[in-house]
Design a protein around this nucleic acid. Structure first.
Lengths: 338, 338
DNA sequence: AAGAAATACGTAAACGTTTACGTAAAACGC
DNA sequence: GCGTTTTACGTAAACGTTTACGTATTTCTT
């Protein structure tokens, strides 16, 4: 078995209390015994047992992160940021893949409760009452990332989707486009769905362009297939469309793919702007102009907030709207140039 | 604070031993007291403390997973599989992002050691002596995924890269291509680098095609940029090339992007086959024909093996070569059709 | 140099479980 | 109905730490 603090104490001829103090950098021993103990630690290859520590300290130095889809490109980047900040703060992260299932989410939450994680990061999904109740029960800090909650007062880290969509749309308008469509998300999604569609609508209206519900096709998800299937539908409603805004990069690229198949040239005949700035945005052809969410940064920031909440450095967490920007690549043409 | 087993015992007027037995489904109590205790558990909202359990059982029901790049598309898919199998087996997974840094890897390994994880999954990287020594010290099972070790006897789950590359190349040959280039990885990479290049070479030679080192451009990494930068170089060495095999999908798509910029049409003028079958392979244009690695499955399988090793269901782990296949999409043209 | 304060430890309880062992009562065998 | 086995518990030690408290020794004060 691994050596314990007792073995070290015996080997160094001191009490376990002294070893503990030395290991934790607390005062109460001479330089001489410190050296002696450190040699014993070295000799035995002693590693403190984090489980025993956790039991007495009521701190596991572990946080849980819940994603609806860990392998999604958006989640991955957020995860990288979270993991990074957690590691810097001395925490480990347990990942949970909820697959957007309420049952699974609850199961995971219970698991994290049993494992006594010190905090939770909840990503990209709506907080149901059931979840919130468990958060309350657990009495650990929670921070939302890439989502928010209207019902509950939970700190979040995200970008302002309304503004992002608004500016994406205005960008198209500035490029001279007047017939603009949108491949949208779900009306049942209060986070990424509704605000992006509202931002789109508002931008059209603010610029004197007509908006009807024909301008938007709605989708259940935000995936490639959704975008691919949406383009023909949108084109039917809006045949003279010269540009479109997709509520996600995946959908934008799906639309691009459909355009290729239909023989529609991007951006010459159809301009496309996306939302997210995933890694694929610069890999596709033509490279996708898109609204950039600082995903890794968001993960990092949310975790930093969580850590400072855990350490008690701040009482009430402040939510953060992260800055977004429009990354210009080659999927949008300028109609003024013609 | 959360209620403990003591609180439940008091509430139900029994000893903690009885509560423990009931919670763990061990024999030694009447139906009557079982009901009574269960009611107390319900009433108090008792959740067993996994930390205390871990301390005494010497089992944390947690595994660690190390990736060189968590947010990479390959890692993400493997992670999904791992997490899935772990959850099914009653384990949680702690993710570690080593960024291919030896120092970070060692730090993480030490951390996992302190946290007393029950097993480790090590992904996509070579096992250095330093790591192996820690594995030995930890005395927990380790399984490699998407990699292998020549020096050490560690179970792995991966596809046979030589065969994959060989078949990818033969696929191009069967389509009538004779001048074939390769965008390869690193010669210093004994896992994904060398075997794929050897498979390529062997396929050419077996089919009576000439092979020289001009047929391959080597790269440090397997990323989009590597592929993008490689195409012009390869074209300089092999101007009459009609097809190329890229050692990764990202590189294949990078090459595609470069081709677009150079005005070379894919697949009409240049056929491209990739390796991995990432999600982007079907999102790019034209959709990428590629060697499919069952990434999620590999993650899942590796974790299943790990779990059965932890549970002691098998002593010596058997390594697994996973089946690959060639997914035909639209990036390769058939020269015979002309 | 004597008392006070600081230092350098050690002892033991506590964290929340599991489990070996003990024991009283119940059930069984004949 | 008496010994034996089984059942249904309870007691207490153990897991590997941290830390409050106690104490002997040293250092400081004056």
């Amino acid at each position: 078995m691994n050596p314990t603090i007792k073995d070290v104490a015996k080997h160094a001829n001191v009490s376990i209390a002294t070893v503990s103090r030395i290991v934790n950098g607390l005062p109460g021993y001479s330089e001489e015994t410190k050296k002696k103990v450190q040699q014993s630690i070295e000799a035995l290859g002693y590693q403190p047992n984090a489980i025993a520590r956790g039991l007495i300290n009521k701190r596991t130095q572990t946080i849980g992160v819940l994603f609806p889809d860990v392998s999604g490109m958006l989640s991955s980047e957020v995860l990288e940021g979270v993991e990074n900040a957690a590691h810097d703060g001395g925490f480990s992260v347990i990942v949970c893949n909820t697959t957007s299932s309420g049952k699974r989410t609850v199961k995971y939450l219970r698991l994290l409760q049993e494992k006594r994680v010190d905090g939770i990061i909840f990503a990209s999904e709506d907080v149901k009452e059931e979840y919130y109740n468990i958060f309350q029960e657990m009495k650990v800090p929670v921070v939302l990332v890439s989502t928010a909650s209207s019902k509950y007062d939970l700190p979040f880290v995200r970008v302002n989707d309304f503004d992002g969509a608004f500016q994406a749309t205005e960008y198209l308008i500035r490029k001279g486009h007047k017939k603009i469509g949108m491949i949208g998300g779900s009306e049942a999604d209060p986070i990424a769905g509704v605000p992006r569609m509202q931002g789109f609508q508002k931008a059209l209206e603010s610029n004197g362009l007509m908006f009807t519900k024909k301008n938007i096709t709605k989708n259940e998800g935000y995936r490639f297939q959704n975008g691919k299937e949406s383009l023909p539908l949108l084109l039917k409603e809006l045949p003279e469309m010269t540009a479109l805004f997709a509520a996600s990069d995946e959908m934008a690229i799906g639309a691009m793919s459909a355009a290729h198949q239909l023989g529609i040239r991007v951006p010459e005949e159809l301009s496309i702007i996306g939302y997210d700035n995933l890694k694929i945005a610069e890999m596709c052809y033509p490279p996708l102009t898109t609204v950039s969410q600082p995903l890794k940064d968001m993960g990092q920031t949310s975790c930093e907030i969580l850590v400072s909440l855990i350490k008690g450095e701040q009482q009430e967490a402040i939510s953060r709207y992260m800055p977004f920007s429009i990354v210009e690549r080659q999927s949008v043409s300028n109609l003024h140039d013609k």
